[in-house]
Design a protein around this nucleic acid. Structure first.
Lengths: 212, 212
DNA sequence: ATTATCTATAGATCTATAGATAATGC
DNA sequence: ATTATCTATAGATCTATAGATAATGC
């Protein structure tokens, strides 16, 4: 039973989940330690197994939630209705970028764990594919209509376009330590770089769909 | 001393390095096991420590080499002289893409290990930055000249352009398991997807530099 | 009576090395 | 005489649980 202890906003169970999230996101499944999670959560180590039985089970809770959030971020970013196509795409890129900026190590975590253990992904597979298909269908319709009207380039595969956007938005965060050193940046430059990057991505994609 | 055993092309030391590469690339430092490496290399486990002393030391050998190769791939891809700018960039994108296709789990490996332990990256930092700067300087000159001639868009930061290219080229490989399931692909579709992807990336970048 | 918490420890791995033995080079 | 190889094991972690004790709800 989850219960909030007097002054504290979180139960021990929630504290473990929070600490586990940090540990797994930064070190991955193999590098994470259940003792470290328990210590960071401020609970006795045995409690971790009391609530979640195994490390694997606790991990799946985290991974599932993160995959769900990540998938939904794409949907909500591009699902804003009532905008003309070009604006809708610009808005989507920026929303998606802001989401990644707020959760910078989510993508690396997910692709890593899915790669190093594809069967973990199995459960989510269907759910992700389903929500993706609806978005793809809607956007493709709108793109085709706009193409007929001469507003955007013809015969654009929206799946490729979305992949362009996600690639451009995610990669700079994944590779930032390397970028920082190659560009000769100090930590102060970080924010300016990402602001610049967001505009670059919008520019690149709008040029991609432009009718020439 | 490295020596080749009669019929065999590799010494035990080389066999360990090869097995270590596979193990580290697929499981990362934390997930890799020295016993597994030794077994895969077909050598007694003690030999691994005889030749490389520690797991950490063996790992650094692999990571250093992979970072070097990865960095050089960008240089050789875009360092081909004698082509007009647009062709040089198209050629660079394709060469870089082909390199990633031949080493699909290199990027994920590198960004992960650098992220989870930035001090490991320290040694390489200067070397990578140096070779990068020369390439950046050369390409920027050429871009500025072309912009004056009206062939490409003005005020393009070549570092942003290179980051666009690397993002577009790398991400689809990093995320392929997820893409495969969302796109409803079977393993047979893989090759076609990546061929299509290469052309998409070229198109996107050429549109990015075009003078409108 | 049930749920939560702690202590103490089993049992499984995993890295690393000591020390003995075999192979090799000079 | 030096280098390579193997056996056997120390010693460090790390996950997981058994079993005792405290807190809570009815």
């Amino acid at each position: 039973m989850i219960k909030s202890k007097d002054g504290l906003p979180y139960s021990k169970e929630a504290a473990i989940l929070e600490a586990a999230e940090r540990e797994f996101l930064s070190k991955g499944f193999a590098g994470a330690r259940t003792v470290s999670i328990a210590k960071a959560a401020g609970v006795n180590h045995a409690m971790l197994h009391y609530y979640f039985r195994t490390k694997e089970h606790l991990f799946e809770r985290i991974l599932d939630e993160k995959m769900r959030i990540m998938g939904e971020s794409v949907l909500t970013a591009f699902g804003q209705p009532g905008l003309p196509l070009t604006e809708r795409i610009r808005d989507g890129i920026e929303r998606h970028f802001d989401f990644i900026a707020a959760n910078p190590d989510l993508p690396r975590f997910i692709v890593n764990e899915v790669f190093s253990c594809p069967e973990r992904y199995g459960a989510m597979q269907r759910r992700v594919a389903l929500i993706a298909h609806r978005l793809i269908y809607d956007l493709q319709q709108e793109l085709d209509t706009a193409a007929k009207g001469g507003d955007v380039v013809e015969a654009l595969d929206v799946r490729m376009l979305i992949l362009d956007i996600i690639s451009l938005n995610i990669f700079p965060f994944v590779a930032y330590p390397i970028i920082e050193s190659v560009f000769g940046y100090s930590p102060d430059d970080r924010e300016r770089f990402f602001m610049q990057r967001k505009q670059e991505n919008v520019e690149t994609i709008l040029r991609r769909i432009k009718k020439l």
